[in-house]
């Protein structure tokens, strides 16, 4: 705009040309963007808005069209004890898997970054679960946990311990799932720590070493402060993953027994595509949209910062 104003005294003989060239200048970027914009509107923006809109209506059934229900779907959600149970599961799942996998990932990264023999083996072994599909991971662990036959009971029986039924018992099933998640995710977080550790100037550690700092002091006073942004970044990704990576439930527990291992997205899937109570599932979608957007805003902020670091 500014440019057009300052041009006024000169523009008159070429006014048409200036307009033409503006059009010619702005057309290419819009053409380049158009496929992305159309796809994003179709599969992200409009569905998200429509989801919020539909959450105020009932599920259409047969000839009965959907009708406005106000906040009823949300009231149903609040009144649903299973929803609270599942939400509680998800919170426990998040606050156990995230710190555990971050600490293990940090240990893994320290090991892989050190001068230990067999580092390629360690790196391979730690990262391998990351490339495996969660469904397959679920199968592998199901076998691992199998009462009587699974490796856990096999080892337990060597010490005379009774057989377990980790996935069959309401008390332990969630921990069984937590274990799988830690196994799957730690290696993924390890690589971020690895990159961060390799970014720490060697002379910083050497200087501290010469001053007589112990390994623990070096870690506590130098390494840890320098990798704090990485820990933050990983925490955000891990929190999102705790809510949307639920495929292992399909192959391991189907949320059971008695919803003791169900997570939010799994419950949503069940409501939408097993019980076909779409309206209720949509209210839960809105809940997830809001929750994940709040976490995601933090993620974008950190992603931008990360890029500036590099």
């Amino acid at each position: 705009m500014k440019q057009t104003v300052s041009l006024a005294p000169f523009a008159s003989p070429f006014a048409g040309h200036v307009e033409m060239s503006k059009f010619r200048k702005f057309l290419p970027p819009f053409l380049l963007l158009s496929p992305s914009i159309v796809l994003l509107l179709t599969f992200v923006h409009i569905p998200a808005i429509h989801t919020i809109y539909l959450s105020f209506f009932s599920t259409p059934k047969g000839r009965r069209p959907s009708k406005f229900k106000g906040l009823e779907n949300y009231q149903d959600m609040i009144a649903d004890p299973v929803f609270w149970k599942v939400l509680g599961n998800n919170v426990i799942y998040a606050i156990t898997t995230i710190p555990a996998s971050i600490i293990i990932a940090l240990i893994m990264a320290q090991l892989v970054n050190s001068a230990l023999p067999g580092r390629p083996f360690l790196r391979f072994s730690f990262f391998l679960p990351v490339v495996l599909p969660l469904i397959a991971v679920g199968n592998i662990w199901l076998f691992f946990y199998l009462p009587g036959f699974g490796l856990i009971d096999q080892i337990g029986s060597l010490f005379g311990l009774p057989n377990t039924n980790i996935l069959g018992s309401s008390e332990t099933v969630l921990w069984g799932i937590v274990g799988v998640s830690i196994w799957k995710e730690s290696g993924f977080y390890m690589i971020f720590f690895l990159a961060a550790l390799q970014g720490i100037p060697r002379d910083l550690k050497e200087a501290a070493y010469i001053e007589g700092a112990s390994n623990w002091q070096i870690f506590r006073r130098i390494t840890l402060p320098l990798i704090t942004p990485t820990i933050l970044f990983i925490s955000v990704i891990a929190t999102i993953n705790a809510f949307i990576r639920i495929e292992h439930l399909f192959s391991m527990t189907q949320g059971g027994p008695n919803y003791n291992s169900a997570l939010l997205l799994y419950y949503l899937y069940e409501n939408a595509f097993v019980f076909w109570d779409t309206a209720y599932a949509i209210a839960q979608s809105v809940f997830l949209i809001v929750l994940l957007s709040i976490i995601g805003i933090g993620q974008i902020f950190l992603m931008d910062r990360r890029v500036h670091y590099q």
Partner: peptide
């Protein structure tokens, strides 16, 4: 608008 997709994971709009 593009970055919003990082917030709206495909999983949360799968019904639509």
């Amino acid at each position: 608008l593009v970055l919003i997709q990082l917030l709206i994971h495909p999983e949360v709009v799968l019904i639509e």
